[in-house]
């Protein structure tokens, strides 16, 4: 026993220190954390609760909608404030009221994401009043390469006269062997043709990915709202 301790005492002692730190340090650490961790969670909810999202709407002012696509109305400390938010629902600038503290802006973004009031899959890029050309984007199957559609509205601004789709999506690949509809924008074209023929909501197209189908539906919904804002309407 004495020899064993002489031989192995050092390494046993060192391991013992590690084990003691692991056990007692861990207990100490857990004890301290247990006192503060619930506060952390409650705190997060607390600052979200201080801010209420009243509404989130599209900004149809074609001078500003590119940079400020949405208008958020929210309440904080009994005041109603209105601000522009971007496509990720991040704060851009105030419309009415003084810019609040950072956590209020975080809360607005949080509520906008959680409450699912409107989708940000489709968005407005530009509108030329003279040529009645509206350029829109939609995030389909390939988020890195959004679909871009250029609509030319009719004279009364209540329908589409013509359109051009720019899409780099291609369903005709090794993963979709059953698909024979050709490269994009075949799907997009077919869906827009349905829309122009008066079908709304538009039926999904065979071979369209779920992402693209939903994105195009969102795009038509936004297009209708935009035309409404021009006092047209489909």
């Amino acid at each position: 026993m004495k020899k064993f301790i002489q031989d192995k005492g050092l390494i046993i002692g060192l391991w013992l220190v590690v084990i003691l730190i692991f056990v007692f340090g861990g207990m100490y650490s857990r004890y301290v954390s247990s006192l503060v961790a619930p506060d952390e969670v409650e705190n997060e909810q607390r600052y979200y609760d201080k801010v209420g999202l009243v509404s989130l709407e599209y900004n149809f002012d074609f001078e500003t909608f590119t940079e400020k696509p949405y208008i958020a109305t929210f309440t904080y400390e009994g005041e109603t404030l209105v601000s522009y938010v971007d496509l990720t629902f991040g704060y851009v600038e105030m419309i009415t009221g003084v810019e609040p503290e950072g956590f209020v802006l975080s809360a607005v973004k949080h509520h906008s994401e959680q409450e699912d009031i409107l989708s940000n899959l489709a968005y407005l890029i530009s509108y030329d009043e003279n040529s009645k050309t509206l350029v829109m984007g939609a995030v389909g199957f390939v988020p890195a390469a959004p679909i871009q559609v250029e609509f030319v509205l009719n004279d009364s601004s209540d329908g589409v006269a013509s359109y051009t789709v720019t899409s780099s999506e291609n369903y005709d690949n090794e993963y979709n062997t059953a698909y024979n509809g050709g490269a994009g924008p075949t799907v997009e074209n077919q869906m827009i043709d349905q829309y122009m023929a008066g079908t709304y909501p538009v039926d999904s197209i065979s071979g369209a990915s779920e992402g693209t189908g939903i994105a195009m539906q969102e795009l038509f919904a936004l297009l209708n709202l935009f035309m409404d804002s021009l006092e047209g309407g489909n």
């Binding site: 600052y47 950072g102 956590f103």
Partner: peptide, 18 residues
């Protein structure tokens, strides 16, 4: 386990957990 905020900081709303 509690993250960056000490027991006083966690009570300050303005920090917003960040």
């Amino acid at each position: 386990a509690g993250g960056y905020f000490n027991a006083s900081e966690v009570l300050i709303d303005a920090y917003a957990g960040a």
